[in-house]
Amino acid sequence: MKNTVLAGVLAALLPTAALAGEITVYTAYEEDEAAAFLDLAKQAMPDIEVNMLRLSTGDLAARIIAEKGNPQHDVIWGFAASTIVNPEIADTLEAYTATGVDTIPAAFRDGDNMWFAVTGYMAAFCVNTERVEKLGLDVPKSWADLVDPKYKGEVVMPNPASSGTGYIQVSSILQMKGEEEGWSFLDQLDGNIAQYIKSGSKPCNAAAAGEYAVGASFDMRAIKNIEEGFPMVMVIPAEGAGNELEANALVASSKNKDDARRFLDWTLTPEAVNAYYDWKAIVTVPGGSLPERFRSAGMPEDTNSILYPTDFQAAGKDRDRIISEWQRRYEN
């Protein structure tokens, strides 16, 4: 034990400058999916030592901004597109046209090739069947259902001021209904919301734990909680699900760009794409098919049919304004 501690200290004391054949990847993929993808990457590129740090989107963004003066990472992998466009982060990136990037529809990558997204996630409700039954409620099918007074105090959703998932939910409602009607709908919804929770995954976990009947969250969280065995179903809102892309990018200050580029190229290989299809409901590159476990959780085969065609540009541009308006209306 002592030796491992000592070895750890020594390893950490070694110069931090990237060695040839070594890259550091920052990712916001969920912990278990990141580990699965990383295993494949290591098999495909045995000569590269890939160090991966996994943090939630917000924590990772704060860290990238704080490290801006001397970035420690070579690659950003699976990181919310609406956050990667934050100027403080976008400034640290370098354009790279990854091999095979043209298989991604233009809507899912940056026009100047600063980033591209191979995967994404969508808004989904986590509904606790045990609690719904106990309270004599129905399983809601849409955002419109959630304003019914019978759900009062039984719905939790993420706070858009602190959660990217929360923001895509609010922003997609405003985009699909138009601002005026959208805000008046959110006013109605607000009457039923028990809590605006400060993370995107927690509302689903709260519903899974039976604290509330409905937690507005995102698809993968719902599917995994169902797999854990919680008495829960996933509902994709009938109006169309707001969605977020998970982007990959090259860091301009990387001291090992050759390997960083190889890694980015790898994220587009058929083998990687196959793995994405095992873990993700939104994969922007064709190939693979929806795994059985997704279908049994309630995901339709053609995920495009349920996605709301999000205007990512507008969503990014309007973020500050929408958040302050949202806080003015619904907080304190």
């Binding site: 917000g58 403080e88 602190s162 400060k198 304190n332």
Partner: peptide
Amino acid sequence: DFNVLATEIYNKVIGQG
């Protein structure tokens, strides 16, 4: 939904960078 100063730092720094 009871917000305090410390959660506001979280909103600004972690939520909005």
